[in-house]
Every structure is written in structure tokens, then in C-alpha cells.
Design a protein around this nucleic acid. Sequence first.
DNA 1: ATTAAGATGCAAACGATTTGCATTTAAAAT
DNA 2: ATTTTAAATGCAAATCGTTTGCATCTTAAT
Lengths: 158, 158
Amino acid sequence: MKNAVTKTKPRAHSHSHQRQEMSALTGRLRQQARKITGPRAAILEILRQHPHPLTNKEIFAAMSGGQCNLATIYRAMHLLEEMGMVKRFDFGDGTARFELVGEGDDGHHHHLVCTRCAEVVEIEECFPSAIESRIAAANGFTSVTHKLEFFGICPECQ
Amino acid sequence: MKNAVTKTKPRAHSHSHQRQEMSALTGRLRQQARKITGPRAAILEILRQHPHPLTNKEIFAAMSGGQCNLATIYRAMHLLEEMGMVKRFDFGDGTARFELVGEGDDGHHHHLVCTRCAEVVEIEECFPSAIESRIAAANGFTSVTHKLEFFGICPECQ
DNA sequence: ATTAAGATGCAAACGATTTGCATTTAAAAT
DNA sequence: ATTTTAAATGCAAATCGTTTGCATCTTAAT
């Protein structure tokens, strides 16, 4: 059951944003017989340190001496996404953003994005699953999920 | 004037999808001192006849003899969007889709998209505004809106 | 009919992303 | 430790949706 609205713990977000151990991350790669390479380690390290979705370019820029090719980051993000280690988000600006996902977590959550300064806040609430189920049933669809993002003007930009 | 809600025929959605008169559409252009050109008339005519979001390419393809340039469609959609005559939707595939919006309507609604065959169903439900307000307030944001789309497998594709 | 703002066509430019291919490398096998 | 090989990377070129510069046309007002 979801506790989006009734939560009591004073956490900013419940979807496992506590930093994962690097060893846990590389371990997941190993389990899938993927190599732990310099570029991948760098990417994971950067993702670990960022609580919000990053674009491939931002990840690239975050690397000290451009120690890896941008194409490599694109490829790595596809791999990590397939493995369920990162989740892709779409803020509607034509640029994909990625966030590290906790093991066992599906990473499903939403954001509130400032349309002026692009500040991002993670959002607890989710579309009510009861309504989603009704929508699915009413239309005969199965495996229904949703993408939901909020946009507005942040305090600083008002 | 709009008669969106007072129709008697069994309709799937209430958000003014009844075809607008062509004259009403061209009138709105005239009011803004925009010219009624062949390409624009063709675009509006195509949009009128389609209940679901169309990509620019689809609009282009729907024109009998490619009577206008694709760039013209892109430009027209920007204009129509600014004028509030069409609404842009993003299904996350990197291609914008547009739907005609009824006069006075803001076109805000959502879709349920089949991830296999791309069938699209218009959805009535919206994210609860009370929750949205709470999200806005909790984070000090103003002018908060949202983008929400549902994805699943349609009856035929199951 | 004249005219000027607005539109269009065309091709080039763009930005995000993908891909082909030769080269490198992690990690398994010896 | 060395060999081996599948996997990964770098680089450049290719794609795809979209935008834009510019010369030419056209709507709609005069």
C-alpha cells in the first residue's frame, strides 16, 4: 500500500535516495556480467552524488577531465536503464534525465520543476492507484502506468 | 459559443472534441490579424477531423498532395499553440503531438496510450487538484500545472 | 490595382541521440 | 602471469525531430 499522503517520517523523499554504496552498484553490474570500467564507475559516482535527475551532458560535464566520450554515457545510460539501475525522466524539453534507482525499488516518482530556473523538487504524491485501475479497467487496458510531472514557479523565481 | 457539454450523443470524452466549425477557426485567426492561407486551412481541416493528437508528420502525410512544406506545419503549430488553438502533448517518444482545442477551453486532459500499437484513448480523469494545490503550497511554488499520460496494453494487443 | 505585413518553400543548421567500426580493456581461462 | 575474448570505448558520421535564414509569394488592407 502507498503511504504518500499519510507519511510521518520527516524525509524529503521515500524513494530510496539515500546514497547507495559504490560496491553495491558495481556488484549489480558484475552480476549481469558487465564490466566495471572507468567511465561506468565515474558515471555511477556522479549519479550517487546527485539527488536529482541529470542529463547525459550534465553527467559528462561533471566529469573532471572529460574522461569519457559522450557516446559512452549514452550507451551506459541505456544499459543502466535496462538493468533497472537508473530511471529515465522526461521534463518535456527534449532531453532525457536520469536518476539512480535503489535496489528493489522501481524508481517510480515524480518531480516539481520550476519553469524559470529549472529547479527540481522530488514529489511524494503519485496519481491515485485506485483511479488508475479504474481507467485501465474502463478501457480494457492492462499493465497501465503513468508519467506525471509538475511544473510551476519556484519561490526564488516568483 | 460552445455546446461541448450539452450534446446528447454518447461520447467518450467531455472536453470539447466535437468538431469546431471551420469558420470559427478561421475567425480566431482573423481576430489576431493572422492570414488564412491554404496550408493553415488544410492543417485546421485535418485537425478538425482527428479526435486524437497528431504529429506534424502525420498532419503532413494527411495532406493529399503535400500541399505545404513540413516547415510550414511546424511554424503553424507554434502559432496555433501560442494562440491557444491547439494543445501540445508529449507521449515521451520525442515527437510532439497536437490536438485542436475548443474555444474557451484550455485543452487540458490526458491520454492512455498503448505501448504496442500506439492506440490513444482520451482520459477524463485528472490529477486531483486538491493534491496539486497541496504540492504547490508545500514547496512554495505558484502556477503549478502538470503533465500526465497513461501507458499500457490495449485490448487488441494483449 | 497597390502595398506591406505576414507566410511559405527550400535548404541549411541544430541539438539530442544513435551507430559503424577500428581499437582497447576487463576479467575469465590457461 | 599471460592469453583470450567478449564487452566496452572513442571517434566520426549518421539520424531524427525541429528550427531558421532568406528569397519569394500572398493575404488583406488601402
